[in-house]
Simulated scan of single mutants.
Amino acid sequence: NEDGTFKKVTVGRTGKAYSGKEYFDRLEILVREGYFHKTNPEAKQYGMDITWYLWTGPDSPLFGKDRMTTFERYFIDDKKTHKETKSPYFKLEDSEEMCRRIFEEFGLNPECSHIINGHVPVKSKSGESPIKANGKLIVIDGGFSRAYQSTTGIAGYTLIYNSYGLLLVSHDPFESTQKAIEEEKDIRSTTMVLEKELERKRVKDTDAGEVMKAQIKDLEMLLDAYRLGLIKEQG
């Protein structure tokens, strides 16, 4: 919504309205039913309809506009028919408060979480920054597409995360093979450090590391049981 609250959207014939994470969860269930359902043709069809809705629906969390006007841009000269209005989310993308509200809604730690947006051209040549909301939201656009480069002024961004921290790399446009050979230049990239880990992340800090620590604990308990004679050696 315009005020940054989560919009309530009615889904299905029950008339129930969903918002926030609950809305995402409900959509996921319906999409899975559209793909996997074998015994209820009506539920399967509705799930398939929802899948199409997610592509271009005005309240789709995957689309973010009121409509898609690809047809109009191809076949209608009147520019008024080409207009696509973005959802209020994009007006609030520089709001740290909104980002924190989203993190909390999805059970994430607001202090170390980030929202990553793609497919939204960043007008770097006009001074627009891909880093928004005090670093909580990062926009990495598809600027490698030549069609966007006149708007963005660059060839897009690459977001890199490793054990040392979070890096954002911007790329200069690649003009032509001929120019690259003649001027001996390739795609030039500029790296920006967004966050640097004070203590380097290790395997133990990852999800896989949590599984390994649980396995180690189980093995230690098994070893203790053996030493106490609770488990007998098999002959």
Rank of each mutant, 00 (worst) to 15 (best):
N1M: 11
F6A: 10
K7E: 14
V9D: 07
R13Q: 13
K16R: 12
E28W: 02
I29M: 09
V31Q: 05
F36K: 05
F36Y: 09
H37F: 00
T39K: 11
P41F: 03
A43T: 11
L54W: 02
L54K: 03
S60H: 03
G64F: 05
G64V: 07
Y74I: 10
F75I: 10
E84Y: 04
E84S: 15
K86D: 11
P88W: 08
D94Q: 10
S95K: 07
F103S: 06
F106M: 11
L108K: 05
P110H: 03
H119A: 05
V120P: 00
G127H: 01
N134K: 14
V139H: 00
D141T: 01
F144R: 01
R146H: 10
T151I: 12
T152A: 04
T152E: 03
G153S: 07
T158D: 07
L159T: 04
L166P: 01
L166F: 04
L167E: 09
L167K: 10
A180P: 01
I181W: 04
E182R: 09
E183I: 03
K185G: 09
I187N: 06
K196Q: 14
E197N: 15
K201P: 00
V203G: 00
D207T: 08
G209S: 11
E210S: 15
E210Q: 15
D224P: 00
Y226G: 03
R227M: 14
R227T: 12
L228C: 10
L230C: 06
I231K: 13
